Structures are given as structure tokens and as C-alpha cells.
Simulated assay, not measured.
Amino acid sequence: MRGVFVDANESLAVIFERLQQPGDPKVRINRNPDLTPDEWPQVLDGAEIAVVDHTPLPTEIARKCTGLKHVVFLGTGARSYMNPEELAELGISVHLIKGYGDTAVAECTIALMWASARVIALMDREMRAGQWLREDGMQLTGKTLGLIGFGGIAAEVARIASGSGMRVTAWNRTPKSHAGVEFVSLERLLADSHVVSLHLLLNDETRGFLSRERIAAMRPGVILINTARGALVDEPAMIDALKSGHIRHAGLDVFNIEPLPADHPLTKLPNVTLSAHSAFRTPEASENLIAAAWEHCRRVAKG
């Protein structure tokens, strides 16, 4: 059985090579993180396993990938890049990797929250332009953080936020309990939270979950943090709420269009702090990620 890591950046390629063990299935590394979807068939060249970081795999392209049986997606958000159900009909299984970057993403969530509360990015931009801008920030100690969705990442966010003196509430689609976290209705969470952070998986049920109506139900002056998926939010409604001030500030690591175009409306708003879908990118998380990818490859090769 043969595989290809189709779109490895250099740092992931080095880790992938280092973690290979004797007896592992042969997996060739394509060091091209800018692979286009049309290049899939040529790069795979009949391989049965594809390890993929971020390159979309449209179903019509997958039909041309003769021999492909398994896609090992480096993360949990495969639906942003492919349709697992349609691929399954072609006999292609999609394998996800969970939990590898819970702490990394949680720390980025907290960083975006604090940067948003203290308007750090705006002051940095203004000072570089020669302006001595002094903005009042939001003091977060004693404030309420509302977590929408509660898995491993949200649990880490709750741990860090509780340690900084915040009250943590959460809503989850299935009942859960967690020490130090009060689980409440979605309506109460939206109304009470000074900061709302999204931690839902993207699927057909959660796409557009934070709708215009739910944004309107949020506490005026709320801070919104999204390190999950851009499509969870009604983007035009969020932009309108940012312009009106209903949303005080947004800290965003994920977007409907990635890379985010330079002329996108979000780049023009002063009350938005942006990061380039990099919440999970730490050496520790990358090590966990690639180790798990190899385990998938080994398991698949053994049948």
C-alpha cells in the first residue's frame, strides 16, 4: 500500500520524516503547500492513502484519483475542504485527527480574547502610523465567558479563563458537566456573556449557527471569538453588528474565504483582530498531529 502527503509545508514534512518507523507503509512527501485541487490526480499517481493538510478535494476531482481509498485529514474540519459522504460513495474513507491541538487552540482563543478586550492590535497599528492612540479596554476579571460547544478545546479554555478570574458558562448540543463550568441554555448564554467563544464542529446542522437573530440576542458590547470555523457565523450579520457596535470587538482566526482577501470587509474594520487560521500551529501540536497521522496510515495499511 502506497501513500502521499500531498501538501506538506517544510516544518510538517520534517516531522513526518522524523516520525517514520521501520516497517511503516511507504508515504511519499510532496513538499508543495500551495497544491491546487486539479493537481490531486497527478500528485497521487494511483496512491491509496492521501495525507492532506489543507488542500480541497472536490468530489469531481476525487473521481479522477484512481486507487485512492483513504484520506487522512490533518485535523477535524474536513468538511471545509471535502464532502466525506460523497467520498464514501466513491469508496474513499476520510479519517480525522482529534485532540492534537486542544491546548494550542485554547491558548490562541484566550490570546484573541485578551487582545480584543484591550484593543491591542488597533493601538499597535495606530502607533506604527505615528498616532498615540489610547483606548479604554474591557477588564475581564469577574466577567462572564460563554462557550458555545464544549469539547476538549473548550475545556482547556475554561481552565485558563477560570484561573484568570472569569465566570465560565457553556452550552452544548448534548448534555455535559465539567467542574467549574455552569451549563446554561443558549438563550441565557447569549444574553449574559461578556465574551462569546465558538467551539462547534462544522456540519450541516451548525453551518450559520450564529445567525443574525442569535447575534441580535447577544449582550450589547459583547466580544466574539472564533477559532472554530468561519462558516459557523452569518458573516454579513457579524459585520453589521461590528459596525453598529453591538459586537464591541471580534477576534477571528477562521474565515469563510481563506486566505482572507486583502480587500475583504473584515480587514477594513478597526474593531476586529485577525489571525491567519493558525490557532493550532505550535511545535507541540504539530508533533501530536503528525504522530496521529502516522498511526492512521499504519492502521489502514494493516487493514
Score class of each variant (00 low, 15 high):
125 R>I: 04
127 M>S: 09
109 T>D: 05
128 R>E: 11
75 G>D: 03
75 G>V: 04
114 W>N: 06
133 L>E: 06
120 I>A: 09
128 R>P: 06
132 W>N: 12
66 T>V: 15
106 A>Q: 05
103 T>L: 13
137 G>S: 07
92 I>L: 07
102 D>T: 05
123 M>E: 15
83 N>C: 11
138 M>E: 13
119 V>H: 14
146 G>D: 09
67 G>C: 06
76 T>S: 10
142 G>K: 01
110 I>N: 05
110 I>A: 02
124 D>C: 04
94 V>N: 06
117 A>F: 00
148 I>T: 11
144 T>R: 01
139 Q>V: 13
118 R>K: 09
98 K>F: 15
84 P>A: 07
144 T>N: 01
106 A>T: 04
135 E>Q: 15
72 V>I: 14
122 L>E: 14
89 E>T: 15
120 I>Y: 05
77 G>I: 02
66 T>Q: 15
84 P>D: 11
143 K>S: 08
96 L>E: 12
80 S>T: 13
117 A>L: 02
140 L>I: 04
98 K>H: 15
84 P>N: 11
126 E>W: 09
133 L>D: 05
73 F>C: 03
67 G>I: 08
119 V>T: 14
108 C>R: 09
132 W>R: 13
119 V>K: 15
125 R>A: 08
149 G>Y: 00
105 V>M: 06
126 E>V: 03
121 A>F: 10
86 E>L: 11
107 E>A: 05
145 L>T: 03
140 L>Y: 03
91 G>C: 01
83 N>L: 08
123 M>N: 10
125 R>Y: 07
131 Q>R: 14
127 M>A: 11
126 E>R: 12
116 S>R: 03
143 K>R: 15
67 G>R: 11
104 A>C: 07
125 R>D: 09
78 A>Y: 13
132 W>E: 07
99 G>W: 10
68 L>S: 07
117 A>G: 01
78 A>H: 09
115 A>D: 14
85 E>M: 14
146 G>H: 09
